[in-house]
């Protein structure tokens, strides 16, 4: 589920829609968490669909290393890619804001963090100063350290900000994410809801 202080906005015919903050969302906020309405489509389920589904599946789902297609049920599926994203996906089913997102700012994520396959490479026009131009599955290996550092900057603030999505996290996910990134995890979080 996407953070509640967000709205879908049309950007342009080329880009389509994007997800924008309706209030400031500070660094350290969990901006998205996997939830029970997100659909996990197994390879068998996908094979059972008519060929015409290839286009919507390619556009709106991401693939896990196990080969399942994940179709997010809400606005989260409209989050666009940026080479300098303000949200980073962790391995524990949630994303965290890695810098302050102002009201009206677009929430973005680096698609290369979403288990891309070699066929899913694409040309990027995100206009970020650090734009890689070509986004590909190899990025994950090259950028692992940089991504880990960004996730850490988010996790360091996790106990200092409102967390409306915290209740969706599975037990132990936050502790493990903090452990992976060398961030001390202290309970109770200062402001849970």
């Amino acid at each position: 589920m996407i953070h509640p202080d967000t709205v879908l906005q049309f950007i342009s015919p080329e880009i389509g829609y994007g997800v924008f903050a309706t209030r400031p969302i500070p660094q350290g906020t969990i901006t998205w968490a996997h939830d029970p309405l997100d659909q996990i489509l197994t390879p068998d389920q996908v094979r059972g669909m008519p060929e015409i589904y290839e286009e919507p599946l390619a556009r709106y789902t991401y693939r896990t290393p196990e080969g399942d297609h994940i179709l997010l049920w809400d606005l989260a599926r409209f989050m666009n890619h940026s080479c300098s994203p303000n949200c980073m996906a962790t391995h524990y089913g949630f994303e965290v804001a890695v810098r302050d997102i102002p009201q009206g700012g677009e929430l973005t994520v680096d698609y290369a963090t979403l288990y891309m396959t070699p066929e899913e490479s694409f040309d990027c026009y995100c206009r970020a100063a650090e734009c890689r131009w070509k986004i590909s599955a190899d990025d994950a290996e090259k950028l692992a350290d940089e991504w880990a550092g960004r996730i850490q900057t988010g996790l360091l603030r996790i106990g200092e900000v409102d967390q409306p999505l915290l209740h969706l996290l599975r037990d132990g996910c936050l502790q493990r994410a903090c452990g992976d990134h060398g961030v001390p995890y202290q309970l109770p979080l200062r402001r849970l809801f």
């Binding site: 589920m1 029970p36 309405l37 659909q39 589904y53």
Partner: peptide, 22 residues
Amino acid sequence: CHLDHVLSPARRLELPPCYAGV
């Protein structure tokens, strides 16, 4: 279509309360 959610009454009861509004 194949991608729509069809939520049975039993499935809805399992969902956290925050989904009632949705």
